[in-house]
Each structure stands twice: as structure tokens, then as C-alpha cells.
Design a protein around this nucleic acid. Structure first.
Lengths: 336, 336
DNA sequence: GTGAAAGCGCTAACAA
DNA sequence: TTGTTAGCGCTTTCAC
């Protein structure tokens, strides 16, 4: 069996209290004793038992990260940023992938909480639930009673809940307004969920139309699965559908529209202009490369970790909301 | 503070041992007592303290997953498969992202081990180290003394180490042979690492050339960073380089070559044929869509979890190596 | 500056 | 079927 604190104490000729002090960097240890203990620890490769320590401190320096699907490029990128930062501060990450259904979100959250995580980070606006459906986020408020909860790219109001999100409304408003300015008349809106962020994007799209005196036409708003070929085929199947530009809430959807344009023989951006979202490799892997909204995910993630550290240190002045600005990466437009 | 086993025992009018039995589903409890205890637990929202349990059992049902970079599509997909399966068996995942440098791999591994994980899963062939550099994998063998180690898409020989990988040699051999059969003369090889799997891919490429009586030309083998524009620019910068087909070890590299072809005005696949690897969304998002090797990642992951469960149950007959066959997804070739 | 000892909440061996 | 009790390895208070 592994060597424990008693072994080290015995070999060093001190008590376990002193060993504990050395391990935890207490100043109340003479330099000589500290050296001796450190030596012994080195010698026998002592590693403190995290379970025992957890029992005493009620913490294992572990953060729960819950996401719907880690194979999603945007989410994976977020988790990468989070893990890097958390690791710097010696926190470990327990990762859960819940999918998009409420029940699974709830059970995953429970499972993470049962591990006595120090904080819970929810990645993706899907956790913000649907508008006017408070029951969608009940489990989050419940979780927040036990541990601070941090939401990335979403907003839930509540005690001990902290949210970082980006200005999706403005980004989509700007993209849509750009289309209008360039003379586009029939602007398609493509989205793949009814999440908090999708709502903001749609609101931005509609506001731009409204401000330009355009009608908001329901048949130009599509909800569809985020799979390239699926989007293409869905668009092709609507024979009478006409549009001269596309505002997509994800690059995958935009690529689907691009595929549609290819099949129809439409030139991008002259015949049809397409904008994506999330600024992923996909928007750069196609031809022509697509304009895409960069929502500064890294900043959202870093801010979140910073806030988390402050909350865990007892700081009571941490802002419950944090908005990051988006940036439109222009790659393909008729504008000059 | 939270309610503990003593509270439940008191409220139920039984001993903590009985409560423990109920919690752990022991059969040696009368139906009446069990009901009573369950009721009380429900009533006061009792959750066993995992740290205390961990201390006693020396396990928290937690699996360490280490990967170089979760924002890599292939790796993220692997982690998604792993997490799903592990969650089914009520294991939690601690995720670490180590990057590609040896030292960081070592410290990350140590950190995971210090959490007393039940098993360690290494995702990516980068952990298999370089050929003829046993020091690259010393820390893995060391880790395997403490906990079973599972490697995905790589191979390391050693006690308590179990590896799943795919037949990269054959896949690349077949892709290359296809090019040769279709009359390609100058086949470029593009890779982004010196990993175990990259070696196998290069070996397959070279074997195909050799078997066809072609020379193996060093100037046709490129090691480059896996960024689309970087690959394109790198290829463009080699003014005198000539090639009529590309074998890439990742879709990102293949897309880079595709961008190069676009700039040069070369038609794909007629003027130049390009094959990618990993069958990602990238290979489908471009135009034309690229042929790509599907290495059946899901099977590798599922097999790994199955083996892990068996090892943890004390099964001594678990195969130390597991090879999965690859499949070439033909999307773009002059072949008929 | 150091040590003794009381928990932390649970599991499991042993008694009853 | 149920209860008693001795750990599991560490942190921390209180003496010295």
C-alpha cells in the first residue's frame, strides 16, 4: 500500500501534525524540521491522500464542467480554454456531457453535485432554457444553493449564479443590416435550437429588418438540424423558397446553405450572400471562405474562471452578468 | 451543514450500518427497515459524502481522461464517445489537456494520478512517443504501476497498459495505391506530427510506393502545422514543388492542400487528387468534398471502455492490444 | 515550534 | 436482520 502521513512522521521523527504543516506550507515550522520532512517525503514518494483531505476540507479542488456535447467544435473550444485556465490554478475538471434534454441535464447536474465539486460551469446557452419556461432552469437554481454556478453563453437569473454571454443581438443585427445595406431583399434566418442565444440572434435579425422597414416573414426563418447535408437538402426541398442571403447561427448551417448555393449554381456572394457564426475552421475550410461572427469565446471563458476564483475566495462583489462584444470576421461580402 | 449518515440513522431509528446497507443496496435488510430508511433519506435529501466513501473504498468511481487538446475535432469526438459510455456505467471523467510536450504530459499525468482515479485513458497517438525513444513513455509505464492505463489510437508495450488503435498502415497503403492505380506519379505526403500513428501512415505510404516500384522522395514528404492557411501558404512557397496527388494524415491538412489547388487553378480530382483523414466535418464542408479515412473511432472508444470495465473487475484475460480496421470514405476520385 | 487527539462520514468485519 | 466499532488518512484546535 502507499505510504501515508504516519509513515512520513515516523521516518522524520516528528508528529503527523508537523508533516501536515509542511505539506500545507504552514510557516510555523522550523527550517530544519521542514527540510527533514521534505527529504523523507521525497525519499519515499509520499502523495497526500486526496480523499482524506477532501473529507477534512470538504473540497477536492475540482470544478464540474457540464456541456451538452463535447464533439461540438464551439463547445470543445470553450472547454479547452476553461481547462487550461483552471489547471493553472490547480483545479481539476470533471466533465459531463448531458445532451440537450432537460431530464438528462438534471441527472448529470445531480451526479456532478454529488461529487462535491467546488463550482459548476455550464457551457452552452442550451442550459438557459426556453423563454417563459422557468421550469427549464429550476435545477440550476437548486444546484446554486449547493455550489456557485457559472453559465457560459447564456443567462439565468438567480442567487449564486454568474453568467457570461456575448452580444448576439448586436452581432446578428449588424450582419443583417449589412445585407440590407447591400440591397439584399430576402434574408433567410437559419438556426438549430431555441436556446437563449438563438433567441437573441433572431431578435437581432428581426430588429434589423424592422428598422429597415422590411416585413418579418415567417417562411424565411428556419429551424433545422445542424448537419451540413441535412441543411442543404432541406433548403433544396423547398422548391418555392426564394432568398438572396443567409444569416446562420452556426457555421455548420452556413456551410449547408453554401452547399445549396453550389447545387443551384448561385455565385457567393454576388447571387447570394452567406454569413456564419462562431468563426470555426469550417468557415475557413470552404470556398469561398465565409464571413462569420467571432463571439470572443476565450474572453468569456477567462472571465468566467476569474469570477469563479473570486467567488470561491469569498469576494461578494463579483458581477452576476458579464457581456462580451462580438466581432464580425469579414471574409466574403460584396461590400468594399 | 449537510445531513449525514448519523442523522439519517437517528431519524430512522436504526444504526448507521443499516443505513449504509440500504445505500449500498445490500440484501440483508428487511423490507420494512429499507422503506423507512429510504423515506427518511428522501425526506431530508441525504446524499452520501463521496470523500468519506472514497476514503474507505479508495475509489470514487472516477476515470482520468488525458488528451493533448480537446479543441481538436478528432479528440473531442473520442472524448464524447468515452464520456457517454463511462457515464452509463456511473463513472465520472476527470479531463486533462496536456498539450504535446513531454513535460506537461508528465505533470498532467501525475496530477490525475494524485486524484486516485480508477483508470487512466490517454487519447491520441501522441502519448505513444517517438520511435526508438523509450524515455517518451516512461511516465506511462510508471503510471501503470498505480492504475490501469488505456491508450486510444496508440501503442505502448507494458504491464497494465491496454491499447486500441486502427490499421493506419493499411488505410494509407490503400489510399496511396489507389492514386498509383489511377496514374498519379508524384504523391505528396502531409503530416503534422511524429506520433505513432503518423509513423504507421508514412510506412503505409512508402510501402505502396515501393510495391509499385516508385522511388520514395524525401522532398514529397512534409511535416507541417495543422492549420488550413498555413498548409496552403507553405505549399505555395515551394515554387518548384510538383505533385499530382496528396495523402494527408488529417482533414485539416487536406483542406490546406485543397486551398493550394484552388489558388493554382488546379481541378480536383482531375488535375490533383486529395485524400484526408479522420472523416471530419471539414472533409464534407469543402467543395469538392474530400475522400477521407474513417478510423472507426467509436469502436476504438467503446472497446476501450469495455476492456477497462473488465480490467477493473479483475478479469486477467483482457487483450493488451486491439486493432480496429479503417474504412476509406470515397467522396472524390477519378476512379469508377 | 511541536505534539496529542478529536473529528470528518463512511465501509466492513465482527458480534449479537 | 441489525448494531458496535475499528479503521481510512488527513486537518485543526488546543496544550505545552
Amino acid at each position: 500500500m502507499a505510504v501515508n502521513i504516519y509513515d512520513v512522521a515516523k521516518l522524520s521523527g516528528v508528529s503527523i501534525a508537523t508533516v501536515s504543516r509542511v505539506v500545507n506550507g504552514s510557516t510555523k515550522v522550523s527550517e530544519k524540521t521542514r527540510r527533514k520532512v521534505l527529504d523523507v517525503m521525497e525519499q519515499c514518494g509520499y502523495t497526500p491522500n486526496v480523499f482524506a483531505r477532501g473529507l477534512g476540507l470538504d473540497s477536492m479542488k475540482t470544478i464540474g464542467i457540464l456541456c451538452p456535447d463535447i464533439s461540438d467544435a464551439f463547445i470543445a473550444q470553450a472547454v479547452a480554454f476553461l481547462e487550461e485556465r483552471l489547471h493553472q490554478y490547480e483545479y481539476d475538471c470533471i466533465l459531463g456531457c448531458s445532451g440537450y434534454d432537460l431530464e438528462a441535464k438534471e441527472t448529470h447536474t445531480k451526479m456532478l453535485l454529488s461529487k462535491r465539486i467546488d463550482a459548476l460551469i455550464l457551457v452552452s446557452s442550451t442550459y438557459a432554457g426556453r423563454e417563459r419556461h422557468p421550469e427549464d432552469v429550476e435545477y440550476i437554481k437548486e444546484a446554486a444553493k449547493q455550489t456557485p454556478v457559472f453559465l457560459i453563453n447564456g443567462f439565468v437569473e438567480g442567487k449564486n449564479i454568474y453568467c457570461s454571454f456575448c452580444d448576439d443581438f448586436k452581432a446578428t443585427y449588424d450582419v443583417t443590416s449589412g445585407f440590407i445595406r447591400r440591397g439584399k431583399k430576402k434574408i433567410l434566418f437559419l438556426c438549430d435550437s431555441y436556446s437563449y442565444s438563438a433567441s437573441k440572434k433572431m431578435a437581432g435579425y428581426e430588429a434589423a429588418l424592422r428598422d429597415a422597414g422590411y416585413p418579418i416573414r415567417g417562411e424565411l426563418k428556419f429551424y433545422t438540424k445542424n448537419r451540413i447535408h441535412h441543411v442543404r437538402d432541406m433548403l433544396l426541398s423547398h422548391k418555392n423558397l426564394e432568398f438572396d442571403s443567409v444569416v446562420a447561427t452556426d457555421d455548420g448551417l452556413a456551410i449547408g446553405a453554401l452547399k445549396y448555393a453550389n447545387v443551384k449554381g448561385l455565385k457567393v456572394p454576388d447571387d447570394i450572400e452567406i454569413a456564419g457564426y462562431n468563426n470555426s475552421q469550417l468557415s475557413v475550410g470552404c470556398e469561398p471562405e465565409l464571413t462569420s461572427v467571432d463571439n470572443h469565446l476565450e474572453k468569456m471563458c477567462n472571465d468566467t474562471v476569474d469570477y469563479m476564483l473570486r467567488v470561491l475566495q469569498g469576494d461578494t462583489d463579483v458581477p452576476p452578468q458579464n457581456e462580451v462584444v462580438c466581432e464580425i470576421k469579414k471574409r466574403c461580402t460584396t461590400d468594399f
